[in-house]
Amino acid sequence: MTQQVSSSGATSTAPTGAFDPRIVVFACNWCSYAGADTAGVSRIQHQPHFRMIRVMCSGRIQPAFVLRSFEKGADGVLVSGCHFGDCHYIFGNERAVEQFEKTMNVVKLLGIEEGRLRLEWISAAEGGRFAEVINEFTDQVRALGPSPFAVEDAIDEIEVPETGGCMNADKGEGKGEGVGEGEH
């Protein structure tokens, strides 16, 4: 679904040769992800430099998610969820705000620019707004330039399926070909 949104909605508003940021977008299943879908279905044009991660609720997006994205080289992280009062789980997005504030404080301490992290409420109907937010945020991150933690192989690292553990580990249990068993 992410692929569809990205490819159908892709435009090249960016000047050629400019830096294309790598942005991670966390979207809740009920509002923001559906909002992205609306943008795609309605063929609303927006910039394609983001990877979307769907979670059931924005309240699930704890500091570790965002910080791991930055650690792995993301240039920007967008956290999105339902508007207040619309949360599918009633108060999940209030939790999201708590988590986000905590994350923002740590991000500031680390010296990562505040502009690289953003919280937005996008409903399922707001396809246009989704495109607007993405364009605006992409331009903002582009202006900030590459993240200090960006590495050449960041994409490869991000696309490795993660199975849990705090260090991107494959525990290798019950999988036959697990890393752990294979090497010994």
């Binding site: 570790a64 910080l67 791991r68 553990g165 705090c166 260090m167 290798g172 890393v179």
Partner: peptide, 17 residues
């Protein structure tokens, strides 16, 4: 080194930092 790691509390946020 064998890529076996703990389930970190706090989702590994502190390790990321």
């Amino acid at each position: 080194d064998a890529k076996i790691q703990p389930e970190c509390p706090h989702g590994g946020a502190l390790q990321s930092v």
